[in-house]
Simulated assay, not measured.
Amino acid sequence: MTLDLNTFLAIFAMAVATVFTRVSGLVLIRHVEMNERRRTAIEAIPPAVLMAVIAPTAFAAGWAETLACAVTAIAARRLPMLVSVVIGVATVALLRAVGL
């Protein structure tokens, strides 16, 4: 297997961009005064990202996926992200098993 230089540079650039965005977020948040409104907005980001990733597939695949997406959205409002994902996966598996 050979590694093309352009492929290597693309992967490297994506890795650098990922590290930069994560580190810059940690550095910049130190300079922001956290009030309740900002804290609420920041806490809403993970469920919003989860739904943005899941929704296109859920609505294009079938009823089991669509219902599991709704269950995941409801779970993500109160539970940690990993628990919400596990609930969503279990829901879609259960609904597929019963033939929906």
Rank of each mutant, 00 (worst) to 15 (best):
I11Y: 06
F59I: 03
E43L: 12
V98G: 07
N6M: 11
V71D: 10
C69P: 09
T66S: 15
V71Q: 11
M51H: 11
T66V: 12
V27Y: 04
L95R: 11
T66Q: 14
I29V: 07
I29P: 00
R37L: 02
A64W: 12
W63D: 12
T72V: 11
A48S: 15
I11W: 06
D4G: 10
H31E: 03
G88H: 11
M34Y: 01
I87N: 08
I42S: 05
A60S: 15
F12K: 05
V23Q: 01
D4W: 07
V86G: 05
D4I: 04
I29M: 02
L3K: 12
A76T: 09
P56G: 13
G25V: 01
T18Q: 02
I45D: 06
V86D: 05
V86T: 13
P47L: 09
P56C: 08
V16F: 03
L3Q: 11
I29L: 04
S24G: 00
V16E: 01
N6H: 12
G25C: 00
T57Q: 14
A44S: 14
T66I: 13
A70R: 08
R22H: 00
A93W: 08
I11E: 07
T40H: 02
T2K: 14
A93P: 06
I54N: 13
V27G: 00
T7H: 12
F20G: 00
V89D: 06
V49S: 09
P46F: 10
N35H: 03
S24A: 04
S24E: 00
F59V: 02
T7L: 14
S84F: 08
R77I: 09
R38C: 00
T21R: 01
V92M: 14
L94D: 05
L94N: 04
I42W: 06
L9M: 12
M81W: 05
A55R: 05
M51N: 12
A93D: 08
